[in-house]
Design a protein around this nucleic acid. Structure first.
Lengths: 253, 253
DNA sequence: GCAGAATGTGTATAAACATGCAAGAACGTG
DNA sequence: CACGTTCTTGCATGTTTATACACATTCTGC
């Protein structure tokens, strides 16, 4: 195992679990805690993480800085993104919708994961640059509000895709209104993408659960399931559960 | 085994596994680790990979990305970009190639300029977000080295475009070799884009004037003109002038 | 305040490294 | 064909780096 590989692994793990326990990693990789500690020390010196007693946590000041630049993702978004990223199987083809939640999903994907990612968001395409994944960009007119390609060219390009999984971003998930978003064209584009994937999961961080926007994308039963933050509003969560739709809980584990 | 073949094999393996362990490869190919290490050293010197203790890992695209983000565009690039941006007429449709020079062009475009920008670079699309320009994104397989969409899907999408102007980025502008770039597929994609625009100007910051890369995009007389930094190497500039190609001087003003 | 865990420091060992050198192959030249 | 040149390769050398162990110190939870 290369030292560089090990450090990447540590950063991936930090991304996934939001913490590293030196002892656990040492045991798992079959080397001494000293080596892990030395790695952690060096990574900390580069500002990539913060050392704490027993292991490490994400860098506090640097991350806040970076997050401020790229648009901070709430804890709820992070939880949902981590759970959604876990749905991506090695070797599979996954469509990533635009939006901050899916951007967070990219951060939670292991860098070495071999898969094909299809996206109509240039932001997400750029974020995938230092991942091993093959990236297919769907082109078209750039809809600037949500920074995704849409329009007829995008629909046409999307119609040639056949994916295993679509991670759908919406602005509202409501028991009766279903999945909604703020723009009609965008809703249409999302419907096209849903049709191109064998399975679709809608991502619902806390502020979206129980909310509704102007345009319906699809009713709840049109998707495979929802990835919902367990810390979202309990009443809304219960109502969604009553509809019988499959729910992946984010934040338990 | 040819040394060139071996180096290709190393790069392939790096692509596949995201890492190279010198010892393993030496054992597998039945030659000494010294030879492998020598190869790795040379490939690292060419920027094709990054050496680490024990082997090598891919050259971090994050580094190039970071350089682009923080605007490490040289003075020469800035001058060329400014002159090129001035070629963009209000109301026109312009194709922007990928690369750092065209990214600098975006920075020099007036934010309020009403025009249509077509690009196959997600980085450039994102950079155009706070401009008034309409953005058309060309999709396709993302070629990670230069961060542009390419492949058949990209060619097909490009073939529907009819633009007034194409700002072509290359890595070499040479009096006899013409316009060159480092990748064959990329060169093909650039040729397609040249065909879709009424006029094409190739952008040549100082380090590109008089240089040549592996693959020819087009001969000099196939483009409308060149935008060249006046502070580039005088001899090379003179030779290019002798060819009779139209030259827009950047930096005089 | 104390016990136990985690940590830092020093040290020994082994692995990986760069460098110089020599043998051999491929090549160009006369 | 002979010769010298250049390039590649493997080996030996000394140097640097990574790792693990031992020990003293610091931190955390009770």
């Amino acid at each position: 195992m290369l030292a560089a590989t090990r450090r990447e692994l540590l950063l991936d793990r930090l991304n996934r679990d939001r913490r590293i326990v030196a002892k656990d990693v040492a045991l798992e990789l079959g080397l001494s805690e000293d080596s892990i500690r030395r790695d952690l020390r060096e990574l900390a010196a580069e500002g990539l993480l913060t050392r704490v007693y027993g292991g490490a946590v994400p860098a506090s000041p640097a991350v806040a800085d970076y997050a401020a630049r790229t648009g901070i993702a709430s804890d709820s978004k992070e939880r949902v993104a981590a759970a959604a990223a876990a749905l991506v199987q090695p070797g599979s083809t996954v469509i990533l919708d635009g939006g901050t939640t899916n951007l967070a999903v990219v951060e939670h994907l292991p860098r070495a994961l071999e898969c094909t990612v299809v996206t109509h968001s240039p932001t997400i395409a750029v974020a995938l640059l230092d991942h091993a994944a093959e990236v297919i960009l769907i082109g078209g007119r750039l809809f600037k509000h949500s920074v995704v390609a849409s329009g007829s060219a995008a629909v046409e390009a999307a119609n040639r895709i056949n994916a295993d999984l679509f991670l759908l971003g919406v602005t509202g998930i409501h028991p009766t209104t279903g999945l909604t978003t703020g723009d009609a064209d965008e809703a249409a584009m999302k419907r096209v993408l849903v049709a191109r994937a064998a399975e679709t999961f809608a991502l619902g961080s806390a502020e979206k659960v129980g909310a509704a926007s102007a345009f319906q994308v699809l009713p709840l039963d049109a998707v495979t399931g929802l990835v919902l933050d367990v810390e979202a509003d309990a009443t809304s969560l219960a109502r969604l559960r009553e509809t019988g739709v499959r729910i992946v809980e984010a934040g338990t584990r």
